[in-house]
Amino acid sequence: MSIHLVSFVGHLAFFLTAISFVVKDIVVLRILAIFSSVAAIFYNYFHPMGSPDWIPLSWCIIFALINVWRVCQIYTEKYQVSLSSIELEMLDTSFSNFNPVEFAKLMRASHWESVDASTTLTKENEVPEKLYFVQNGSILVTRDAKEIARISDGTFIGEMSFINDSRASATTTTLTSTKLVAWDRLALDQLLSRNPTLSILLKHSISVDLTKKIKGQPDPI
């Protein structure tokens, strides 16, 4: 085996490892790690010193198998996910930073609520028990009994109270029959503490929603 070819493959193994450190997609990262391990296996088997270097070669085989197993597991979970048409619409719009598996985990911790008009969701200066996402409906936002905004589909309610663990800065009341996704705060806190990635993704979705509200002038609740 040409020493130049073996050396090239050795450099390729380290190059692929370096690239894997900067990619954000976990599947791409693991696929790069697999190819890096395969290149390292080739290099260590046809080692320039003339005989296989079995210690790194053995570990590279183990690393490759672990990453193959994890990639298969990720794709298996992905194809086992079952989302309704409404949930898929939410995923495509307000939760587009989630992948289907992560979004399914978040939705399993929630429940749907259908409420009539004039239902109070949060009360000013009280700590909300739930974080809401408006799937369909119209909400009146008041402070000191004065209207400050109206919000509708695709927005969170109680998001600032949830993030800051604080009291609601406004009262929210439904203007129409409204369909909501609701998360009990305690259960959601427990889920996010076990899944830091979900916590980051949810806070990103909330931040995007807050940005839209600020541009449209409604105050975060």
Rank of each mutant, 00 (worst) to 15 (best):
S199Q: 11
Q80W: 09
I157R: 03
Y43C: 00
P56E: 01
T173Q: 10
S2V: 05
S166Y: 03
A149W: 07
S166T: 08
S166V: 01
F21V: 09
I214N: 13
V23P: 00
S207I: 00
L5A: 04
S193N: 09
R185A: 11
R167V: 11
E124Y: 06
V101A: 07
T76L: 15
Q80N: 14
L175A: 02
V71M: 11
I221P: 01
N44L: 01
V127D: 07
I151R: 11
L121C: 01
T155V: 09
P52R: 01
V181T: 09
D184C: 00
F133N: 05
I148D: 04
I19K: 12
S207E: 11
I41N: 10
F162T: 04
S84P: 03
Q135N: 11
K215T: 06
S152V: 02
T173S: 06
K203Y: 02
R185F: 03
I34C: 05
R167C: 11
T176A: 01
N164F: 01
V127F: 14
P128M: 00
S58V: 06
G154F: 04
D116R: 01
A109N: 10
P48I: 02
L5K: 07
T122M: 03
L188F: 05
Y132T: 04
E113C: 09
T76R: 15
L202K: 10
L106T: 02
D25K: 14
K123G: 05
